[in-house]
Amino acid sequence: MTVTDIRTLADRIEDLLPQTQCTKCGYPACRPYAEAVARGEAGYNQCPPGGAEGVARLAALLGQPVIPLNSANGVERPRPLAVIDENICIGCTLCMQACPVDAIVGAPKHMHTVIAELCTGCDLCVPPCPVDCISMPPVTGESTGWDAWSQRQADAARERHERREARLAREREAAEARAAARRTSSAAAAAEAETSTAAPVSASVAPTEASEAASKKRAIIQAALERARKKKEELAAKGQGPLNTEHVSADVQAQIDAAESRRRRLGLAEDSADPDTPPSPAGTRNPR
């Protein structure tokens, strides 16, 4: 019996990419780039992490001549590693949100750190950092391209990226479901309020279910805020609190508040405050 290989050309191209998910090729990840090359919409010499060997691999697959790496996409170089200066880090989480392979761990207003063996050296965590606390030193000596990377590392990076994309998709769907539920609840509350206008006496006798739910929510939020405040005080007393979180510049604070607002809207952060509450002024952030 003949076994038919159902893998597409894009699958084969993707298998030859280093899976750093760095976007230097001009596409949001390795898979979209592979698909663009397969369609003939992108050159097979646009992957700096793959370097000259990567171009040669793709050329052999596509039956094309080996050409130089496109300098517009970057240069072949030793693989770098993201390093966070914890004395400067303010715990804004922007680097965590940018990392395509979940190689950074931390929590809002707590120190972040990079898991060295998971970092692909993509550089994507550097631009969003508002305090420039991330450096990218080379860690592979003079080895570049595929000499500075392995197939095992590429496979592991692809798996982490795929898991991250699946998780973000689930979180977006959950956030959309919660938003739809809130809209439905608001519409029901508005309809109930309109009905209660005709019978003010009965409305004053007992609170509506909507008002009881709102009161319960406020109580839960207040309790969460109090726990967060106490935890922050305990960490500060032990000298374990994050540095540089107070009296930051207005520009830095605005970036942090905007990021946290986006995370709440997308359901990517714990709802410790009402999503409709405006961000606090610079230097007076509410604990999360």
Rank of each mutant, 00 (worst) to 15 (best):
V3W: 01
R7Y: 00
R12M: 03
R12F: 00
Q19V: 00
Q21W: 07
K24H: 14
C25N: 08
Y27C: 03
Y27G: 03
P28V: 13
C30L: 04
C30Y: 00
P32I: 06
A36M: 03
R39T: 09
E41L: 14
Y44I: 05
P49H: 05
G51Q: 01
A56P: 02
A56S: 12
A59Y: 06
L61E: 07
L61N: 09
P68K: 14
G74N: 10
V83F: 05
I84T: 05
I84G: 02
T93V: 08
L94Q: 10
M96S: 01
M96G: 01
M96E: 08
H110V: 04
H112G: 03
H112T: 07
H112F: 03
E117S: 15
L118V: 07
C119T: 04
T120W: 04
G121F: 04
L124F: 00
P130V: 08
C133W: 00
S135D: 15
T140F: 02
T144Q: 12
T144L: 03
Q151L: 11
R152L: 10
Q153P: 05
A157V: 00
E159C: 03
R160C: 05
E162K: 13
R163V: 06
R164H: 12
E165W: 06
E173L: 11
A175H: 06
A177C: 05
A179I: 09
A180E: 09
S186A: 14
A187R: 12
A190C: 08
A190Q: 12
A193E: 15
E194G: 14
E194A: 15
A198I: 08
S202F: 11
A203T: 06
A206Q: 13
A206G: 02
A210K: 05
S211H: 07
S211C: 00
S211V: 08
A213F: 04
A219W: 04
A219K: 11
I220E: 14
I221Y: 05
A223G: 09
R227Q: 14
E233K: 11
A236P: 00
A236E: 12
Q240G: 07
P242S: 07
N244R: 12
N244Q: 06
E246C: 00
E260Y: 13
L268K: 01
L268F: 12
E270I: 09
E270Q: 11
S272Q: 08
N286I: 14
P287D: 11
